[in-house]
């Protein structure tokens, strides 16, 4: 039996870099999908609005774990073999897309209606309105909750260890299987998650304060 030492700690840290990579990929892909759903949710077409609302409701009402199982075990049974990293990225991206869509829809809706009217009156097309007037303001509004959601995303990446992908969590479990020093190992693993998440939480809260201050001014 090995004991918990520097090589093990290094192994865990390498897992942490995969956790960050996974978060970034899920955020970028999930953000792209989520952005489309946010705009669909606000579309003039009732059908598009319904589809987007349904998608968001369903994804937010099932465990991320089930999304992961469906894309990994489910698809592999159907003959589509996804490598663990792909399955993990895909399911986390799907999960993120629903929450980001909802956050961003809220942000877009909190841009005053008059901004739409004023820009429409200046003959801007709908895409132009989004690009030049609405999105620049909505993005500012969305920053605090978006950063806050990143914390949720980082934490949720921990479940992908179940498909064998060696992220921070799985690295900790593997070291535990070799050393049986669970207390120290999971303290370290928890501390690393905390080191990633806590600054993001503080940043989110700070941005919110800045935003509130500039709104009342």
């Amino acid at each position: 039996m090995t004991t918990f030492g520097w090589p093990e700690a290094y192994f865990i840290l390498r897992g942490a870099s995969w956790t960050i990579a996974l978060t970034v990929i899920a955020f970028v892909i999930g953000g792209l999908i989520g952005g489309v759903f946010a705009i669909m949710r606000l579309s003039r077409s009732k059908l598009l609005r319904r589809i987007a609302a349904g998608y968001i409701l369903v994804i937010q009402s099932i465990p991320v774990l089930m999304v992961l199982f469906m894309s990994y075990y489910g698809l592999s049974a159907a003959g589509i073999e996804l490598p663990p990293f792909l399955a993990a990225s895909a399911s986390l991206a799907i999960y993120a897309s629903a929450y980001l869509a909802e956050i961003w829809r809220g942000s877009i809706e909190s841009v005053p209606r008059q901004q739409w009217e004023a820009s429409a009156s200046l003959a801007l097309t709908t895409p132009q309105q989004y690009r030049y007037i609405i999105l620049p303001q909505a993005i500012r509004i969305s920053l605090p909750p978006t950063v806050g959601f990143l914390v949720q995303l980082v934490k949720n990446t921990s479940i992908v260890q179940v498909v064998g992908f060696v992220d921070l969590m799985r690295a900790g479990m593997l070291v535990n299987n070799a050393t049986y020093q669970a207390f120290q190992i999971f303290t370290l693993v928890g501390a690393i998650y905390f080191a990633i998440c806590f600054p993001l939480s503080r940043l989110s809260r700070h941005l919110e304060k800045v935003m509130n201050a500039s709104r009342s001014h």
Partner: peptide, 30 residues
């Protein structure tokens, strides 16, 4: 709307753009 201007009670300037940008935006892009 390129031929008909409207001015609102609540001004409705675009807060993220400077005065100059507010004015130049539509002529440039429409």
């Amino acid at each position: 709307r390129k031929d008909v201007g409207i001015v609102f009670q609540s001004y409705n300037l675009f807060p993220h753009l400077t005065v100059g940008q507010n004015i130049m935006l539509s002529p440039r892009i429409t």
